[in-house]
Computed example of a mutant assay.
Amino acid sequence: MTDILVLGAGYTGVAAAIRTAVRTRRAGGRVRLVNASPRFTERLRLHQTAAGERLADFPLEDVVAGTGIEFVQGRVAGLDVERREARLEDGRVLGYDKLVYALGTVTDASVPGVADHAFVYDDYTGTVRLSERLAALTSGSVVVAGGGLTGVESATEIAEAHPHLRVVLLTRGRPGSMMGERARAHLDAALERLGVEVRTGADITKVLPDAVELAGGELVHSDATLWTTGTRGLPAAAESGLTVDARGRIVVDSALRSVSHPDVYAVGDAAAVSQRFGVLHGTCQGGIPTGLHAADSLAATLRGRTPKAFRFGYVHQPISLGREDAVIQFTRPDDSPRRWYLKGRAAIAYKETVSGSPIPTFRLLKRGLVPVWVFALSAGLG
């Protein structure tokens, strides 16, 4: 038997675990999946949870049922990559022969006050606390820090669900700056329509209990602050001796193995994956393909074969703008914008198709099938 331990049960970890179980079953693989929460969190939809929407509940034991995967509930406290052991907060120690590290990233709380006074999307329970805070406000201001995809989706979702609240989006650059001009124009119009106050050129120096401080000393009043700018890998990776990059992500080779400890595979946001156009940035779009490729690499290694090199190209930048609007920017493989984009109802339909519940994808993986969209992303586009 080969003991395979998968740490983290987000989109990428679950996909990696199921694919690994299927591909290594005949080679004697035993897969255990470790996660702090017993439920699968649709992290792509946390902005909806923040705005008050209750999403479907998916117990992880049900998600992996029928695969032979053993689910272990527990929070990872540390790794010993020399002894090949993972230590959980409750003291349990899990040994492994091969490890798939899919613990993702956490919010970069290096700006003073973020850890103490801001809400973040690091987990489901923290997002529910934000939802409860917003529901309790009969008036006041909500500050969303960060003008990337997550910040824009959160600001528009909250503004639509709580029209009695003032929503301020603070960003250094233009919201949706990675998109093409026409897609950005639609995004700007949606922010204006929903009454979101956009402050560009905002350099936040401190988060206070009831305000956000900008460079120069200006205070922007806030009854609830959501921080969506900047992420880092969990300290466990660097502390274990694994080679990591400046953001704490595990540096991997073309087979998605750690460059310092090849028995460790890193996937999703937790991995620094290099392609010809640069290092992948963390999205579900790239996450699930890395999880599947790591599983295939691991299975090939157990069979004494040489793993194939991971190749990937981006396809789109989908942004919801509340429940009644969206914009999709189609991209080149390096994530730069193409001319084509969708808006309005067409964009909503497209986003629901590609960013809907991953449960159907997991069901296909259990049958040994790979969704067509994964082939499109990983067919040498990088």
Rank of each mutant, 00 (worst) to 15 (best):
L149D: 07
A155V: 09
S154I: 12
T171E: 11
Y121V: 07
Y124E: 05
G151V: 10
A159V: 00
A145W: 13
G140W: 04
V168T: 12
T138L: 08
L149S: 14
A136C: 02
V142R: 04
R172P: 10
E160V: 08
L134S: 09
A135P: 08
L130S: 06
L169W: 08
L169S: 00
V168L: 08
V152I: 10
L149Y: 15
T171W: 04
E157L: 05
L165R: 00
A161Y: 01
V152Q: 14
G146H: 07
L165A: 04
A135R: 15
S141W: 01
P163T: 03
L169M: 03
L169I: 09
E153Q: 13
V152W: 12
P163I: 08
A136K: 03
V144C: 07
R129S: 12
G126K: 07
A161I: 06
P163K: 10
Y121W: 14
G151F: 07
S154M: 13
G126W: 08
V128T: 06
V167Y: 02
A159Y: 09
G140H: 05
R133S: 02
Y124F: 12
T127R: 10
H162G: 12
R133K: 14
A159P: 03
T156L: 10
L134D: 10
S131C: 01
D122S: 05
R133C: 06
T156Y: 05
R166P: 00
E153T: 11
S154Y: 14
I158D: 03
T156S: 13
L170I: 06
E153G: 13
E160C: 02
D122K: 08
A136G: 15
T171S: 15
A161T: 02
V168N: 03
L149F: 15
G146Y: 12
T156F: 10
H164S: 07
T150Y: 12
T156G: 05
T138C: 01
T156K: 02
A135K: 15
